[in-house]
Every structure is written in structure tokens, then in C-alpha cells.
């Protein structure tokens, strides 16, 4: 993924030798490998993955907390379990998959290049929702719906 972001000359020289769909295909393969690992190694059991540094340092949940366990639930097609761990991931995932699909599609030169941009207020709304979600999932009264596994943030217990 870094190769598509960095624009140093060696990276471009290597990229020129590969078909353009190689990068989205490689990212897809990497994601599938990660999901297979996540399906096999359960993040619900302690000791398998390290604690997120921000949770470890602050004892508060960030909008990403529970993403690993939510993805693990999704590998079992357990949508309710995923929503219990991080409902925001469930909302964001279709967009991520769509963006990857658009990347693959454009790399195959099947359609005209994109000319349309979403209005900026859509993205400002996303930002507002992310900040609100950050705050709300740390409020103990809302923990049953928004906190990972419904557990109140460690700093607030």
C-alpha cells in the first residue's frame, strides 16, 4: 500500500514494470490474508494481540477500539457481534470495500476517469460524527450500545 502512496522514483520505476491492477490485487490479497489470520487467531482471548497503545495509555476508547474483534466476528458472519464491538466499523467497511473496488476498476481502464466529487459537507459530517462517536462511546450510560463488548472504558470504572 505504501508503494501507491510514496512517489519516489525507484517506486515508480518498479511500478512501471507491473500491470496497474497489480497494486489493488496485492492489497486485496494482503487484506484476505489478514482476515484469514484474524479468523484463526481470536482477538477475544487475551494474549493474542497487544492492547492498542492509546487504550493502554489513556484507558479511554477511541473510534477504532474493537475493530479487530469486530472484523473477527465478521469472518464468522456474526453481524450482531461485530456491531457490539465497533458499530462504526460496520458502517465504514462498505465504503472501504467500495473504494478498493473503484481502485481496481480504474486500474483496469474499463471506464472513464472519475470527474465527480462528493460535496465537502459530506466529509465534514463524517468528521463531526467521528468526533461525537469518540466522546459518546466513553460515556458509561451509552456503553451498552457504543463501547466494545458493552464494557465501560477502564479509565471511568
Amino acid at each position: 500500500m505504501l508503494g501507491t502512496v510514496a512517489t519516489s522514483r525507484p517506486v515508480q520505476a518498479i511500478a512501471a514494470r507491473w500491470p496497474r491492477w497489480a497494486a489493488p490485487a496485492a492489497v486485496g490479497l494482503l487484506a484476505a490474508t489478514g482476515l484469514a489470520l484474524l479468523a484463526a487467531v481470536d482477538p477475544n482471548e487475551p494474549g493474542h494481540y497487544p492492547t492498542c497503545p492509546s487504550l493502554w495509555l489513556t484507558g479511554l476508547y477511541c473510534p477504532g477500539c474493537g475493530s479487530l474483534r469486530a472484523l473477527h466476528a465478521l469472518t464468522r458472519l456474526d453481524f450482531a457481534g461485530a456491531a457490539q464491538m465497533n458499530p462504526a466499523l460496520l458502517v465504514a467497511l462498505p465504503y472501504v470495500v467500495w473504494a478498493w473496488g473503484r481502485w481496481l476498476w480504474s486500474s483496469l481502464d474499463l471506464g472513464p476517469p472519475r470527474r465527480w466529487l462528493a460535496p465537502a459537507w459530506v466529509i465534514w459530517t463524517v468528521l463531526t460524527l467521528v468526533m461525537a462517536y469518540w466522546l459518546l462511546r466513553n460515556i458509561p450510560a451509552l456503553a451498552p450500545w457504543l463501547a466494545p463488548a458493552g464494557v465501560v472504558a477502564p479509565a471511568l470504572t
Binding site: G64, S67, V96, W100, L117, A118, A120, L127, V130
Partner: peptide, 30 residues
């Protein structure tokens, strides 16, 4: 606008960087 990277950063990596990325994504569109 690299919005998908901003969302991935927010959900899987580093929230402050993700928030800044969303701001720049919105600036691109506006």
C-alpha cells in the same frame, strides 16, 4: 482526497492522524 486512507487510519491506526486526514479530504472537495 484519500478519504479511504483517512477512514482506515481512524479505525485501525492513529486517531489524531486520521482526524487530520479527514480535514484535508474535506478541503480537497470544498
Amino acid at each position: 482526497n484519500y478519504l479511504v486512507f483517512a477512514i482506515l487510519t481512524t479505525l485501525f491506526c492513529c486517531l489524531p492522524l486520521g482526524v487530520a486526514s479527514i480535514v484535508f479530504a474535506a478541503q480537497v472537495n470544498s
